[in-house]
Design a binder for these strands. Structure first.
Lengths: 124, 124
DNA sequence: CAAACAAGCTTACCAATAGTAAGCTGAATT
DNA sequence: AATTCAGCTTACTATTGGTAAGCTTGTTTG
């Protein structure tokens, strides 16, 4: 049995469907900043500004956009504390389920040292 | 101990550096089509056109670009069979190391049904 | 209690990345 | 010899992201 078949079977009995949702999923969590936002939310509920501060380089626009997307997909709940302007974002159970993915990436980074070395010297 | 700290410590003793390479890595493998290309290459060496056919919707331009990036980072080797116009791409050991990440995403997809349901009805 | 400020967005504009489609090269087929 | 087809490359458009400013409403401060 080929490896890909094995992988596909591990999700569903229908290769194509599994492949489609795999595609949709990896494209979703692969959107810029998405993984990092999830990573920081795995720490527990965070306020908007807290995230904006912790995630170096992200802009308000994209942070808001990504949080909305996460919320729309049910990975995050937005809790607006009613008495004040405090807003908290918290991962849902489905969102917390991303943890193994994040951990597997961290494991990879640990083993391989990350993707920072560009090795682009092969182009003359 | 907070969860994030724990995650960071699992990679390095220095939180910031670990976070940086995590960022770089997740942005790299999160690039459009990157994960899907790796997923298909986990099956074994593939020819260019084979990948282009299997990965539905990808364009020549992006497939070439992503393969070059993977090659530049040492995740893929390009083997040009000299007698003909056959070109094969194969994951290196470092590339094969992505397998657990792909698997963790597949596991997630299996458990959660993927990211296809948009649930955007919350906006009136 | 009015002015200033700050959190949490929103908008506008420009840059970078991706999609589309066509073309190019050179081996293989007819 | 002409055609086809793999494996790119180029040119152009569309979508996405970055930057910066502004808006709104609650809080603080004089």
């Amino acid at each position: 049995m080929k490896k890909t078949d094995e992988l596909i079977q591990s999700t569903q009995q229908n290769g194509q469907v599994a492949c489609d949702s795999f595609h949709a999923t990896i494209e979703f969590i692969g959107k810029r900043w998405m993984g990092i936002i999830i990573y920081h939310l795995l720490d527990g509920p965070k306020r908007y500004h807290e995230l904006a501060t912790e995630i170096d380089g992200i802009s308000d626009r994209l942070l808001t956009e990504r949080l909305k997307e996460l919320e729309a997909h049910g990975f995050v709940v937005k809790r607006t504390l009613p008495s004040s302007r405090k807003v908290e974002y918290e991962l849902t159970e489905q969102g917390i389920a991303f943890d193994p993915i994040i951990r597997s990436i961290l494991t990879w980074v640990k083993a391989n040292g990350g993707c920072t070395e560009s090795k682009t010297e092969s182009e003359s």
